[in-house]
């Protein structure tokens, strides 16, 4: 009897529990869904924005649909100015800088967390201080520096600057992960007589693929949207990027907001695709790593 009662109450409790958890999940999903709407809304807003003219942009409520969609904003963006070229420049400059940053940062993080040397702490400190300088303080010194190297108006100046300025951040993010990563796998590999380069490229890098993808995403977004450096160092049209292309629609007294919206919309597409691709790697990488481990 008592056991039955017990079982009953247990059952009851379970049912209650599941009812409660159903409600809980409902609330949870409602909240999550609300956040999702808030987060995806900007993209929709931007799309509407890109189909409006100045009059609508500043008059109608931002919620509103464009009354008479101005698709010509897109054709204008494609025909006025060199957006195709800017597009190409944006892609190769971003990719080069991302690859360099992530690789160099992985090297450094590996050396700092896995290898034994006296100066590792001070060197890490050096990298961290690199986070702290405000960008606008560096413009005049960097311009002068690249001028002396004859690299002004040369894309290398931008690629190198992006790499250098993203290294500290990238190293710090990598560092947090490297510390939590179990060292056993690597130790075993060394015992097996694995060379250090093989260890880095065949064991450590694949194991850290999730965080490498994470930093790649972050770097990619920063480089893609950067405009202060490129504005300052580059003057010929042939090396300018999409962010500079936006300026094509900012006039002395008049700004064409619809066209800017269209430029922003066009420029977000490749990065959105790259993001979705890399973002899957965050999960897949873990699976691959754990199989190896």
């Amino acid at each position: 009897m008592s056991t039955i009662a017990q079982a009953n109450t247990k059952h009851e409790a379970k049912r209650k529990n599941s009812a409660f958890s159903k409600l809980g999940y409902g609330v949870l999903y409602a909240i999550l869904g609300l956040i999702a709407v808030l987060q995806i809304y900007p993209l929709i807003w931007l799309f509407f924005f890109s189909l409006k003219d100045n009059q609508e942009v500043f008059n109608e409520s931002p919620f509103s649909l464009p009354t008479d969609p101005k698709w010509e904003n897109y054709t204008r963006v494609w025909t006025d100015g060199n957006i195709g070229l800017y597009f190409f420049n944006s892609i190769w400059i971003t990719v080069t800088a991302v690859v360099m940053t992530v690789l160099l940062a992985s090297f450094v993080t590996f050396a700092i967390t896995r290898m034994k040397w006296k100066l590792s702490k001070p060197v890490l400190g050096l990298f961290m201080v690199g986070l702290m300088i405000p960008v606008h303080s560096t413009l005049i010194p960097l311009f002068d520096f690249f001028l002396k190297l004859n690299l002004i108006d040369h894309p290398l100046s931008v690629v190198l600057t992006y790499t250098a300025f993203n290294l500290p951040l990238t190293i710090m993010i990598l560092l947090g992960f490297y510390y939590t990563l179990p060292k056993e796998v690597e130790e075993a590999a060394i015992m097996d007589g694995c060379s250090i380069h093989r260890l880095f490229f065949q064991v450590t890098l694949p194991m850290t693929l999730p965080v490498v993808s994470t930093t790649a995403i972050i770097n990619m977004i920063y480089n893609w949207n950067e405009f202060v450096f490129i504005n300052t160092f580059i003057s010929s049209d042939q090396y300018k990027t999409l962010t500079v292309g936006i300026q094509n629609f900012i006039g002395q007294y008049m700004t064409e907001w619809g066209a800017i919206g269209a430029t922003l919309m066009i420029s977000i597409i490749p990065i959105l695709i790259a993001f979705l691709f890399l973002s899957n790697r965050i999960v897949e990488g873990i699976a691959a790593g754990s199989v190896k481990g």
Binding site: L104, L126, T161, T163, A164, F165, L167, P168
Partner: peptide, 9 residues
Amino acid sequence: ALLLILTLI
């Protein structure tokens, strides 16, 4: 990497 940040930062 060190060289890069020493010169550019």
